[in-house]
Every structure is written in C-alpha cells, then in structure tokens.
C-alpha cells in the first residue's frame, strides 16, 4: 500500500470515527433530554396526586367541621325550638298553639339552612369575604374577642379548589388564634399588589418564639396547603406581641 493510500484510509477511518463520535454525542443529548422529560412527567403526576389528596383532605375537614357545627345547632338551637313548640302545641290555648306553629315554621327554616351546609355547594355560592365576615362575627358573638375585617375585594374571583383551601387555612388560623393566643382583637386584612393578593391575619395575643420548633405539624400543613394552590404561607410572631400570618396568592 502506498503512502498516499494509507493516508487516505487513515483520513477515511478518522472521519468515520469522528462522525460516529459526534452522532453519539447528539444521540446522547436526545436520550438525556427524553429521560428528563419522563422524570418531569412523573414529578408532575406526583404533584398532581398530592394536590388532589390535599384537596380531598381539605373537603373532609370542612365537612367534619360542618357536621360538628350542625350537631351543635341541633342541640342548642333546633332542639330548644322543638321543645318550645311541643310545649306550646300541647297547650289548649289557641294563642299558644299559633305560637307553637310559628316555632315549627322557624324550625323548618333552620333545618333548611342547615341542610344547605351539608354538602360543599355553599362554598361556590359564598364569597371569601363573606365567609371571613361570618367567621369573625361568630367569634365576636361568643364574646371571646373583638374582630375586624378590611377588604378590597381582591379574593372575590376564586375557583372552588382555591377557595376551599383558603377557607380551610383561614379557619385553622382563626382556631389556632382562639385556642393558643387568647387575643383581645383579631384583624383580617385583604389586599393586593401588582402580582399577588394577600390575606393578613393579625392577633394581639400571646405570640410565640418562632425559632422554637413546634411539636405539631399544623404550620407545615398550612404551608403545604397554600403551596398546592400556588400560594405562600408566612408567619411572624414575638412573645407578647401577637402573631401575623400572611397568605399570598398570585393572580
């Protein structure tokens, strides 16, 4: 084989080897990209499953809360009304009987209202501002503490899932404030800025040291729940200076 022929063969094989290496590189890039796509899809499915699970939990908790409330209403309100109706209807006096009938009407009204809260359709019909107002009125009516709501209506447009999670988180925050902080006043501020809307829940209660690790998983649960709807949960508190919880949700 002449020198020229051997050089030709060297260049030819060198070229083939080089082309093979380059092709291998590009194929490897495509394979790596595909693998990342698959991993990403699995991750997305996992996040979706977790979100669905969280929503289901939230719905269950709200239903549980509603059932407790219904039990209380049946015992404290409807039970009392039924006793009064029975007493009045048993009387021979016509005015007492008509009073008994009025009680029956009132009971029917109360039962209708209660039955509406049994499924979660009320979530769609009530605005978040109305819900917060109802919750604060309930707290104030018990004489536990003063309450205030300042809202610019930023959360009037919400889908059902977002509303469910926010309702549950707000309920939980208020329950915590009542249970642990013993405040004189609870204030809720609803506002917005350019990119997000915010709910601030402030109390002037005992407060706590945020550096101290809590035993329970309440706060991390609330944080996770806000994350499932693309929101953020943050908390600031100092001993003796109350607590401020901020719930942020992008538009």
């Amino acid at each position: 084989m002449s020198e020229q022929e051997s050089q030709f063969i060297l260049i030819l094989f060198g070229g083939i080897f080089f082309a093979f290496l380059m092709s291998l590189f590009v194929v490897a890039m495509v394979v790596l990209h595909r693998q990342r796509q698959v991993q990403n899809r699995q991750k997305l499915t996992q996040i979706k499953d977790e979100n669905e699970k969280t929503l289901l939990n939230v719905e269950n908790e709200i239903q549980q809360e509603t059932l407790t409330q219904i039990g209380r209403e049946l015992h404290d309100n409807i039970g009392q009304l039924l006793s009064l109706a029975k007493l009045n209807l048993n009387s021979s006096k016509p005015e007492k009987q008509s009073e008994g009938k009025e009680y029956i009407n009132q009971i029917i009204k109360e039962v209708r209202t209660l039955s509406k809260t049994l499924n979660l359709d009320w979530v769609e019909s009530v605005s978040l501002d109305d819900f917060i107002r109802q919750q604060l009125e309930k707290i104030q009516s018990t004489g536990f503490c003063q309450t205030a709501l300042e809202s610019d209506g930023s959360f009037l447009e919400l889908n059902k899932d977002h509303k469910l999670v926010l309702i549950r988180v707000i309920q939980e925050c208020l329950n915590n404030a009542i249970k642990h902080a013993h405040p004189d006043k609870i204030t809720i501020l609803v506002s917005k800025n350019g990119t997000s809307r915010t709910i601030e829940i402030r109390d002037d209660g005992k407060g706590f040291d945020t550096n101290h690790q809590s035993q329970g998983s309440g706060m991390s649960n609330l944080k996770k729940r806000m994350e499932t709807i693309g929101g953020k949960f943050s908390l600031t508190s100092k001993v003796g200076k109350g607590t401020q919880i901020t719930l942020k949700l992008p538009f």
């Binding site: 890039m29 790596l32 990209h33 990342r36 796509q37 990403n40």
Partner: peptide
C-alpha cells in the same frame, strides 16, 4: 437542552 425546564 438537558438542564432547562423550558426545553422539557
């Protein structure tokens, strides 16, 4: 291509 989410 293999690291950025936008390419996924």
């Amino acid at each position: 291509l293999i690291t950025i989410d936008e390419f996924l």
